[in-house]
Amino acid sequence: KFNKERVIAIGEIMRLPNLNSLQVVAFINSLRDDPSQSANLLAEAKKLNDAQAP
Rank of each mutant, 00 (worst) to 15 (best):
M14Y: 07
A26E: 12
V7C: 14
A9V: 10
D50W: 09
I13E: 01
A26P: 01
I8R: 13
Q23G: 00
L31A: 04
D34Y: 09
G11E: 14
K1T: 12
I10M: 12
Q52I: 04
R15L: 10
R32V: 15
F2D: 05
D50P: 00
A51T: 09
A45T: 00
R32E: 15
N40L: 12
N18Q: 02
I13G: 00
L16S: 01
G11M: 14
D33L: 14
V25A: 13
S36V: 06
D50Y: 06
A43D: 12
V25I: 14
P17K: 10
S38P: 04
A43Y: 12
V7I: 12
R15T: 07
L22A: 10
D33I: 13
S21M: 09
K46H: 10
G11S: 12
F2I: 11
N18Y: 14
R6V: 15
I8V: 09
N18P: 00
E5I: 06
R6Q: 15
N40T: 13
A26K: 10
Q37S: 05
F27P: 00
D34W: 08
A39P: 04
L31I: 13
F2T: 09
A43M: 10
Q52E: 02
A51Y: 11
K4A: 10
M14N: 04
I13Y: 02
K46Q: 04
Q37Y: 05
E44M: 13
V7Y: 15
E44S: 09
L41H: 04
I8D: 05
I8G: 03
K46V: 07
N29V: 10
A43Q: 10
N40E: 11
D33F: 13
K1P: 14
L42T: 05
V24L: 08
G11W: 14
Q52V: 04
N40K: 15
F2S: 09
P17N: 06
K47Y: 07
D50Q: 12
N18T: 01
N40S: 13
N49G: 02
N29T: 07
I28H: 02
K4W: 10
Q52P: 02
N40W: 13
L16D: 00
Q37R: 13
L19V: 01
F2R: 04
Q23D: 03
L19W: 00
D34H: 14
K46C: 05
F2E: 15
N49L: 01
S38E: 03
I28D: 01
N29P: 00
A9D: 03
A39V: 07
N20Y: 06
D34V: 05
V7W: 15
L42Y: 03
D50A: 13
A51I: 12
S30K: 09
K47V: 08
V24Y: 04
A43E: 09
R6G: 15
K1R: 09
V24Q: 06
E5G: 04
L41S: 03
Q23V: 02
K4S: 15
Q37D: 08
S21G: 10
K47Q: 12
L31H: 01
A26D: 10
P54S: 12
E44P: 01
L22F: 10
A51N: 07
N40M: 09
Q37M: 13
L16P: 00
P17T: 08
R15G: 07
A9F: 15
V24G: 01
R32F: 15
L22T: 13
R32T: 15
Q23I: 05
L31G: 01
K46D: 02
D33Y: 10
Q37K: 13
S36M: 08
D34I: 04
S36A: 11
G11F: 11
R6E: 15
E44K: 13
I13H: 01
Q23T: 02
L16T: 00
I28C: 05
N18I: 00
S21K: 14
K46T: 06
R15H: 07
A39H: 11
S30R: 14
N20V: 06
E12Q: 13
L19P: 00
R32I: 13
K4T: 14
N18F: 09
K47R: 11
P54T: 10
V7N: 08
L19N: 01
S30E: 07
I13R: 00
S30C: 07
F27S: 01
I13A: 01
A39L: 12
Q52L: 06
P35Q: 08
N49M: 02
A9Q: 03
P17G: 06
A43F: 09
L19C: 01
L16A: 01
E44V: 10
K46P: 01
P17F: 05
E5F: 07
D33E: 10
N3S: 04
I28G: 01
V25M: 13
L22G: 11
D50L: 11
R6Y: 15
P35S: 07
I28T: 04
A26F: 08
L48A: 05
N29A: 13
A51L: 10
N3R: 03
L42K: 03
L42S: 03
S36D: 03
E12N: 08
N20C: 05
L41Y: 11
A39G: 11
S36I: 06
I10A: 06
K4I: 11
N29G: 05
M14R: 08
R6W: 15
P17R: 08
R32D: 15
I10T: 05
K46M: 07
R15Q: 11
R32L: 14
K4V: 06
K46N: 06
S38L: 11
L19S: 01
E12H: 07
N40P: 07
L22M: 13
A39Q: 08
I10H: 03
N29L: 08
A9W: 08
P54Q: 10
R6D: 15
N20E: 03
M14S: 06
N49C: 01
N40H: 15
V24W: 02
A53E: 08
K47L: 04
D34P: 01
N29S: 14
R15P: 01
N20S: 12
K1M: 12
R15C: 07
E12P: 01
V24F: 03
I8L: 12
R15W: 03
Q23E: 02
I8N: 06
S30M: 14
Q23N: 02
I8M: 09
K46R: 11
N20W: 06
L41K: 10
I28Y: 03
A26T: 09
A51P: 01
A43W: 09
N29Y: 05
A45V: 02
I10R: 03
N29M: 14
V7T: 08
S38A: 09
D50C: 06
N3D: 15
Q23Y: 02
R6C: 15
L48P: 00
E44C: 08
K1F: 10
E44G: 05
N49H: 02
S30V: 13
F2A: 11
P35A: 13
V25Q: 14
S21A: 12
E12T: 10
S36H: 13
A53M: 09
S30I: 14
I28F: 04
R32P: 04
M14V: 06
V24E: 01
P35L: 09
K47I: 12
L19T: 00
E5D: 15
A53S: 11
Q52H: 04
E12W: 05
A9L: 11
S30T: 10
A53F: 08
E5W: 05
L19E: 00
A26Q: 13
N40Y: 10
S21D: 08
D50M: 11
I13P: 00
A45P: 00
K46W: 06
N18H: 13
L48M: 08
S38R: 04
K4R: 06
A45G: 01
L48D: 02
D34A: 07
S30L: 14
N40F: 14
E5Y: 09
Q37V: 06
F2N: 14
N49S: 07
A53K: 11
V24C: 04
L42D: 00
I8F: 12
Q23M: 03
E12K: 13
A45F: 03
M14Q: 08
L41C: 06
V25T: 14
Q52K: 04
A9P: 02
